[in-house]
């Protein structure tokens, strides 16, 4: 097995949520979906841009001294916090819990999840993003796809996400034909 599964701390909701997200990504990959990384790429770029600004400000201050670097430090500090704000806004208002975007046979889907801090419920949303934004929401407690020792169980999760996908993505004639021909 290329990816031996990790045991998850069943008392930690964030750990459970992350493990479930990761598993869904793998399930979708195994179903032939191609992942689109644009959301996370923008997030990484915003984040690393701010880190580079901080590093440049630190380096300049170190080499020329506090007095000489002061105006640039001020610019760097403001720029850093603007970039950080953009980074946070991107996560809160654009990603909104979306951890997967991908496509198969010309159909795009987007998958997001959330879990409240002290509640063992996993909220899953699958949205069809090709043309419409038809979405399907569902919530399940984590114990439906984790065993009592903390390992994730794929089949109930797979069944669940299959159901959600088929409720938003209709196989129209053209894509069904394309499938037959290939």
């Amino acid at each position: 097995m290329p990816n031996p599964k990790n045991k998850v701390n069943l008392s930690s909701v964030p750990d459970l949520k992350n493990a479930t997200d990761d598993e869904i990504v793998q399930i979708l990959a195994s179903k032939g979906y191609t992942q689109n990384f644009s959301l996370i790429d923008v997030r990484l770029m915003l984040g690393f841009a701010s880190v580079i600004v901080a590093a440049a400000a630190a380096g300049y201050d170190y080499y020329v001294g506090f007095e000489k670097a002061k105006p640039f430090t001020a610019i760097g500090v403001s720029l850093y916090f603007v970039l950080n704000l953009a980074f946070t806004a991107w996560i809160m208002y654009v990603e909104k819990g979306t951890f997967y975007q991908g496509h198969k046979d010309g159909k795009k889907i987007s998958v997001s999840s959330s879990a409240k801090k002290y509640s063992p419920i996993y909220n899953l949303t699958v949205t069809e993003t090709t043309t419409s934004s038809k979405s399907s929401k569902a919530a399940k407690p984590f114990n439906e796809f984790f065993d009592s020792t903390g390992y994730i169980v794929r089949s109930p999760l797979e069944k669940w996400i299959d159901g959600l996908i088929s409720s938003v993505v209709q196989e129209d004639d053209s894509s069904a034909k394309a499938k037959k021909n290939s």
Binding site: A57, T73, F81
Partner: peptide, 19 residues
């Protein structure tokens, strides 16, 4: 990134305060 952000945020707060 999350590791770097912890370091740089602390550092930039310090620099902001010093400005």
């Amino acid at each position: 990134l999350s590791f770097c952000l912890v370091l740089t945020t602390t550092f930039m707060f310090w620099k902001g305060l010093s400005v």
